[in-house]
């Protein structure tokens, strides 16, 4: 099982061009991540903004055509609702930070457990990882939303458990599974000679892991980890389906309050733009880091 994830070796036979190797490396990395990589350029954001402006003006023109001069334009409506929508978007970001934090801590532990020498630990952590990687994000979110209690009582202390925290946990579960695979892949990509060398220097297994292997892994894990973060951020809209007051939920409520169906397009477009504007710098940085670390490998 583990072998599949290794970076594919090279061959002397001129069967395929270097592109094949690159693709395979990318596939191996994506498999570890469980999701494809993002690639963004500045003009994509501009293009999206242009599309939305075009849409809004189109809708505006349509509204004019219908002879509803007294009706408010789409742009001023978006402007009026801007504080509400931005507030919702900040909530999305907060959810993504928390999920990423919890998922990373839990996933790192799970990933280290996956290379344990004790087979029950290895087996069970592998099972947990595969389970949460194979379950759709939306289903996991529903699961946490409906089946986690509203509050926990531990030793007489009642800890409230509002639904946004449930959403954080629901999103942290697939993040955990993906981080687990990133960590396992990174640890296994360090040449085994290092383990042997450290062993001969009388390092214990834990010392080798924490002082030699993991510090090297951080660099390799950073790009896929950031990519995972971008994917998580886009997945936070799923929380709207279960009623958390994030940007999509608010957009839907705004649309219900406005009750003007022609607003659906520009408002959803605006939500797309918000996400694009946020994910773009992350994707750029990821790309830069990838390039920088690729040279040193």
């Amino acid at each position: 099982m583990a072998k599949r994830h290794d970076v594919y070796g090279t061959t002397d036979l001129p069967v395929l061009l270097p592109a094949a190797e690159r693709l395979n490396r990318q596939a191996a990395a994506e498999r570890v991540l469980g999701a494809p990589k993002l690639r963004l350029r500045a003009w994509h954001g501009l293009a999206l903004a242009a599309v939305i402006v075009l849409w809004t003006s189109f809708v505006w023109a349509q509204a004019d055509g219908a002879g509803n001069e007294q009706q408010e334009s789409v742009i001023s409506a978006i402007w009026r609702w801007l504080p509400v929508l931005l507030g919702g978007f900040v909530f999305n970001i907060a959810i993504s930070f928390l999920s990423m934090g919890i998922g990373t801590v839990a996933g790192t532990l799970l990933g280290i457990m996956q290379i344990s020498q004790v087979w029950p630990v290895r087996g069970s952590s592998w099972l947990v990882t595969q389970f949460f990687r194979n379950a759709p994000w939306l289903v996991l979110l529903f699961f946490c939303m409906f089946l986690l209690p509203f509050e926990f009582t531990v030793f007489g202390v009642t800890i409230p458990f509002p639904d946004w925290i449930k959403a954080v946990i629901g999103l942290a579960l697939p993040v955990m599974a993906n981080v687990s695979e990133i960590v396992r892949g990174a640890i296994q990509s360090i040449p085994s000679g290092q383990w042997e060398a450290a062993h001969s220097l009388a390092f214990s297994r834990w010392q080798i892991l924490s002082q030699i292997i993991l510090p090297q892994c951080v660099k390799r894990m950073l790009p896929p980890w950031m990519n995972l973060y971008a994917i998580l951020t886009m997945a936070t809209v799923l929380a709207s389906v279960v009623g958390v007051g994030e940007v999509m939920t608010l957009t839907q409520r705004v649309l219900a309050a406005e009750n003007r169906p022609e607003f659906l397009v520009p408002f959803y477009g605006f939500v797309m733009l918000l996400f694009f504007a946020y994910c773009y710098p992350i994707a750029r940085t990821t790309q830069k880091l990838e390039l920088r670390y690729a040279v040193k490998q």
């Binding site: 993002l38 293009a47 999206l48 886009m234 797309m272 996400f275 994707a283």
Partner: peptide, 11 residues
């Protein structure tokens, strides 16, 4: 780029 970088639910 458009399809990769916006949430599929919003799409």
């Amino acid at each position: 780029q458009l399809f990769r970088n916006t949430p599929p639910l919003v799409q």
